[in-house]
Simulated scan of single mutants.
Amino acid sequence: MLFKQYLLKQKIGKFSYFIWDSEKKTIKSVNNFKPLNIKLIIGIDNQKKILLENTINFTEGNFTNNALLWGARGNGKSTLIKSVFNKVAEEHKILKLVQLNKNNIFDIEIIYNIIGKFSQFRFILFIDDLSFENIDSDYKIIKSTLDGSIQNQPKNILLYVTSNRRHLMSRDMIDNERSSAIHTDESVDEKISLSDRFGIWIGFHKLSQEDYLKIIKSYCLYYKIDCSNEIETKAIQWSLQRGNRNGRTAWQFILDIAAKKNLKIDY
């Protein structure tokens, strides 16, 4: 047991980014972790500032809040978490990121027991795209697990969770609960109380065309692509064809343009 602890400590010291291996009940290091340069994250300056400050404070040993990043898909929630982590970890080698698949959330107490012992390190436990579509037995078990785990959270672990739902559940779920509950307010409050466990809520909303084009220009400058009026027009057409205007759409457009120009961009 002591030897396994020693090996795990060596692995944690050597690597920065990990994923939880639910089958083997251990963390697995990721060698090819390449987050987006934080300078390229445009149009969400306030969100970036909040998360960066919270992460730095946590790394420096201060009491900080768990964060829930919510909003429509493709607006940079997961990208921001990884980029902020990478930026802070460049100067603070004690900071580590562990990604937990939402389907393995029942392992969260096991993770706490394993990495919580390494008090010389600081861990961000990252759960991506967590939301609930139905009020069923699984929801109640997961809510109980996550709610309880937040209360018993080791001081060297911080939770960063992304969701497309502000309260981790759909509006229909909340409305259905209101219409069927005997004690409406109490029942609804109980259902959304899980999101209240996150001291920081960071919302992500649809980009304006101006901000969307700023992202395009930023990518073009960074990857040395000539951002002509034609490129801007094509970028707008690209977003219209996909029916959305967000950071993911902008990135996909840049990949397409780079391929057509035979530019080998490194990311």
Results as ranks from 00 to 15, higher is better:
K206H: 13
L8D: 12
M173Y: 07
Y6K: 15
S195T: 03
L240I: 04
W70P: 07
I127K: 10
I216G: 01
I216W: 08
K9C: 09
K260H: 12
K11Q: 14
R122C: 07
A72E: 09
N32E: 15
N262A: 10
N46K: 10
E230N: 15
Y267V: 09
I108P: 09
K39L: 07
D196C: 04
L100N: 04
V84H: 01
K143D: 08
N75G: 02
L68F: 08
A181R: 09
R73C: 00
K39H: 11
G61N: 05
N57S: 10
T249C: 06
Q209D: 13
F18P: 07
F18L: 05
F126S: 08
T184E: 15
E190R: 15
S187Q: 13
Y212W: 10
Y160D: 05
D107Q: 04
L80S: 00
S131Y: 14
K9W: 08
T162H: 05
Q237I: 09
I38G: 01
D226S: 13
L263C: 02
V88S: 01
K155S: 13
L168C: 03
N62E: 13
I115W: 11
G203S: 14
I182A: 10
S218P: 03
I215F: 04
N57R: 08
F123Y: 14
D107V: 07
R73D: 01
S137I: 11
S131W: 06
Q99A: 10
I38K: 01
W238I: 00
K87W: 06
N103W: 08
N104K: 12
L207E: 02
S187C: 07
N86R: 06
T145V: 14
N54D: 00
K224M: 05
K82H: 05
P35V: 00
E232K: 15
P154H: 13
I27E: 04
L213R: 08
N62S: 12
Q5F: 02
I108D: 06
I50Y: 01
L36C: 06
Y223E: 04
I111Y: 12
K28T: 11
F253W: 11
N65M: 02
G76H: 04
K217A: 02
N156T: 09
R166Y: 07
K93F: 10
F198K: 07
Y6T: 12
R165A: 01
V188Q: 10
C227K: 05
E210M: 09
N32C: 09
Y267A: 03
K191P: 00
L2Y: 06
S180P: 00
N103M: 11
F15C: 11
I42Q: 02
D45E: 10
I110K: 15
H183W: 07
R165G: 00
N101C: 06
R171T: 12
N229E: 15
D172K: 14
L36M: 06
V98A: 03
L8F: 13
I157E: 04
W238N: 03
Y222L: 04
I41M: 03
M169L: 14
N246F: 08
K34H: 14
I19D: 12
G74T: 00
K93H: 12
I94N: 14
F18Q: 05
E91A: 06
G76I: 01
Y267Q: 07
S239F: 02
A72P: 10
F63N: 13
S193V: 02
D21Y: 09
L159Q: 12
Q5H: 07
